[in-house]
C-alpha cells in the first residue's frame, strides 16, 4: 500500500529535528567562543580539571556561558509562547510582542522595580502584566463567533503602544541613572547570572504540557467547535495554553526585556519545514527559537564590537519585514 508520502515526511521531520537538536550545542559553543577576547580552550579545560583560575575559564564559564544559556531559554520560551498564542487566538500573526503581552509584562515589572518591591515579586508582577494584557486582548478582540484577525491585531497594537507609553512614563519619573540600563534591558539585554533554575523548570514543564496536548492543539487550531465536537475539553485546554503562554512570556521578559518577533518568526519558519502538526512543530520551534537567539545574542555582541547592540533590535530587523509580508499575504487570502 502507498504509505510513501507520510513515511517520507516523517523521516524528513526526524532529520530536521535532529539537525535542530545538534544546532543548539553548536550555537552555544560558537557563542562562548566568540567575543573580544579569543579563547584558549586548553586553558579552559585545564582550569576545569585542576581548579587553578585562568582568564579564559572566567570569560567562557562565568561571562559568556550564562549569557548564552539565558539567550537559549529566552528564545525557547518566546518561540513556544508564540506557538501557543497562535493556537489560542487561531492566528499565525499572534506573538507576545505584537499583541502587547511582552509590553504588559515589562511595564508591570518596571513598576515593581520602581516601587522598590523585592526581586522575586518582579517576576510575579511581570506574570500578572503578561496575563492581564492577554486577557484584555481576549475580551476586547473577541467579535461575534471566531477571532477576527483585524480586530485582534488592532487591539494588540493599541495595547502595545499603551504599555509603551506607560513604560516611557515610568522611565521619565525614575532617577536618571537608572534610565539607561532600564532602556537597554527593555530592548533585550542578557547581562546577568543566567536563566536560573525556575526558568529552566518552567520551560521544561511548558514543553511537556505542549507535547502531551499536541493533538489537542492540532484540533483547537482547526476550530474551537470542531475540537469540542471531537471530544476535546476546549475550555480547560485554552485556559492551560493561556496560563502557559503568559508565564513563558513573563519568564522571558524578566530575564531579557521585551525581545520581539521570535514567537512570530520561528513558528512560521518551522511550519514551512515540518508542517502544522504540533507533535513536531512544538519541539522544532523550541529548539530553533533557543539556537536562533543564542546566535543573535552572539551577533549583538560582536558585529559592532566593542559596542553591544540590544538583541531586540536585531530580532526586530528580521521580524518586522516578515510580519508585514505575512499580514499582506494573509489579507489577500481572506479578501478573495
Amino acid at each position: 500500500m502507498s504509505n510513501t508520502s507520510s513515511y517520507r515526511s516523517a523521516r524528513r521531520t526526524r532529520w530536521v529535528i535532529g539537525m535542530l537538536g545538534a544546532l543548539v550545542p553548536v550555537s552555544m559553543l560558537l557563542a562562548v567562543s566568540a567575543g573580544s577576547v579569543p579563547v584558549d580552550w586548553a586553558q579552559v579545560l585545564e582550569t576545569a580539571r585542576t581548579g587553578v583560575p585562568s582568564l579564559d575559564y572566567t570569560v567562557v564559564v562565568e561571562l559568556r556561558l550564562p549569557r548564552a544559556a539565558s539567550a537559549l531559554v529566552v528564545g525557547a520560551c518566546l518561540a513556544l509562547a508564540g506557538v501557543l498564542m497562535q493556537v489560542l487566538l487561531r492566528n499565525p500573526l499572534a506573538d507576545p510582542y505584537v499583541l502587547g503581552t511582552s509590553g504588559g509584562a515589562a511595564a508591570m515589572a518596571l513598576m515593581a522595580i520602581l516601587i522598590g518591591l523585592p526581586y522575586q515579586s518582579v517576576s510575579i508582577a511581570a506574570s500578572i502584566g503578561a496575563m492581564g494584557s492577554m486577557m484584555l486582548v481576549f475580551v476586547l478582540a473577541r467579535g461575534q463567533g471566531d477571532w477576527s484577525s483585524t480586530r485582534l491585531l488592532l487591539t494588540g497594537i493599541v495595547l502595545a503602544s499603551g504599555w509603551g507609553a506607560l513604560i516611557s512614563f515610568l522611565l521619565s519619573i525614575s532617577q536618571s541613572t537608572q534610565v539607561f540600563s532600564m532602556l537597554f534591558w527593555l530592548m533585550g539585554d542578557f547581562r546577568g547570572d543566567g536563566p536560573g533554575a525556575a526558568r529552566w523548570l518552567l520551560l521544561a514543564g511548558s514543553l511537556t504540557f505542549s507535547l502531551i496536548m499536541s493533538r489537542g492543539l492540532n484540533l483547537l487550531a482547526a476550530g474551537e467547535l470542531k475540537a469540542e465536537s471531537l471530544g476535546v475539553h476546549t475550555l480547560s485546554l485554552r485556559l492551560g495554553i493561556f496560563l502557559t503562554a503568559g508565564l513563558l512570556t513573563a519568564a522571558a521578559v524578566t530575564l531579557a526585556g521585551a525581545i520581539g518577533f521570535v514567537g512570530l518568526v520561528v513558528p512560521h519558519m518551522m511550519r514551512m519545514i515540518v508542517g502544522t502538526d504540533h507533535r513536531r512543530l512544538v519541539l522544532a520551534s523550541v529548539l530553533l527559537g533557543g539556537a536562533l537567539l543564542v546566535l543573535t545574542e552572539m551577533l549583538a555582541r560582536t558585529v559592532l564590537a566593542p559596542r553591544q547592540l540590544p538583541v531586540g533590535v536585531i530580532t526586530a530587523f528580521v521580524g518586522v519585514p516578515l510580519f508585514l509580508y505575512l499580514l499582506r499575504r494573509g489579507s489577500r487570502s481572506t479578501d478573495s
Binding site: S6, N91, P92, A222, R271, G275, T276
Partner: peptide
C-alpha cells in the same frame, strides 16, 4: 469551517 493554518489533507 475556516482554514487558518496550512494543515495537510491527510492530517
Amino acid at each position: 469551517p475556516d482554514v487558518i493554518f496550512p494543515t495537510t489533507v491527510f492530517e
